[in-house]
Simulated assay, not measured.
Amino acid sequence: MLDLGGSRQQIVLAVLVLNANHSVSQDRLVEAIYDEDPPATSRAQVQICISGLRRLFAAHGHPEMIVTTRQGYMLRVPADAIDLRRFESLVGRARKARDDGRHREAVQHYRDALSLWRGPAFEGIESRSVQALAGWAAEQRITANEDCIQRELELGRHQELVGELTRLVREHSLREGFAAQLMTALYRSGRQAEALRVYREARRVMIEELGIEPNERLQQLEAAILTSDESLDPPAPPVEVPAEPRVAVASVPNMLP
């Protein structure tokens, strides 16, 4: 892990990473650092940050990583050197495999994508511009996680998913999708009372936090669990389409956060 210097330098690098291989103007970097109140020296401060990052990368054998362009500056790196881009690529493969009926392959791609995360994106970087993009990335992560688990439930892996779903419901208490998946996994594991307890807790949180009842899907799921509806039984194993040959994702040096 590299010491990236002060907060301004970290913000500049974060913006360059999010726009890797594309030019970023000085004005955009100024806005990312200072929001709507830049000082008179703001452009000079950006240049100081760029110089500091160049020295840092040069000291680690990458003197040409940040280049000056007509529009501003550009971080020049292989596409698969950025975890977020690798994540997007793997999620794209997962969705294609899902749509083509290759469920196990879809799950594998999703799990490979999710394994790239090691905490919140750009944690600790205090910039509205950066955090707005970090929020978007976090939403993509949650959506991929939900879809992956849904595929795994369809493959009959309900018992294996209970622990992970319990953690996800705790971390994302307003995400009714995770609550529904946990209720389903518990019910299929013969734990009906615990599944109903998850619903009651989700309902309590929704009312206290938002002042509303859970959505219709969650209410219908509770009713189905109470009546042991056959529709909740584990599905028959899906018919698998032969998997496409997997393309190995090359490992890359740990050069960037």
Rank of each mutant, 00 (worst) to 15 (best):
A59R: 13
H109N: 09
A248Q: 12
W117V: 14
D147F: 09
L232P: 07
P253N: 08
P238E: 03
M255S: 09
L210F: 05
E194L: 08
E230F: 09
A248N: 01
Y187F: 15
A134L: 03
E160T: 10
L168Y: 12
G52P: 04
V169R: 09
P214D: 05
S228F: 04
R70H: 10
R54C: 13
Q220Y: 07
R246K: 15
V77P: 13
E208H: 06
L16P: 09
A180T: 11
E31P: 00
A97S: 15
I66G: 14
R93V: 13
F178Y: 15
A97T: 07
A243K: 06
D233Y: 13
T68L: 02
E88A: 14
S51I: 00
I149Y: 10
R200K: 08
S173Y: 06
V15G: 04
Y187C: 07
V12H: 02
A97M: 11
Q220K: 12
S251T: 08
L186N: 04
E126V: 15
E160L: 10
A14Q: 05
V239S: 05
G190D: 02
C148P: 05
V12A: 05
I11P: 05
Q150P: 00
S129M: 10
S127N: 03
E164V: 07
A44N: 01
R203D: 14
Q192W: 08
A94Q: 06
A236I: 12
R188Q: 13
A144Y: 01
Q47S: 12
P214C: 01
A14F: 05
R203G: 10
A20Y: 07
A193E: 06
R70E: 11
D80M: 11
G211C: 08
I50Q: 01
Q47Y: 03
E152S: 14
M255E: 09
P63N: 10
P78C: 08
D100Y: 11
S89A: 06
S25C: 10
R118F: 07
V15M: 03
G72W: 01
A195V: 05
A14G: 01
A185V: 15
A106F: 07
T143Q: 09
I212D: 01
R141C: 04
W136I: 14
G156R: 12
S251E: 10
L56T: 04
I50S: 11
A20W: 11
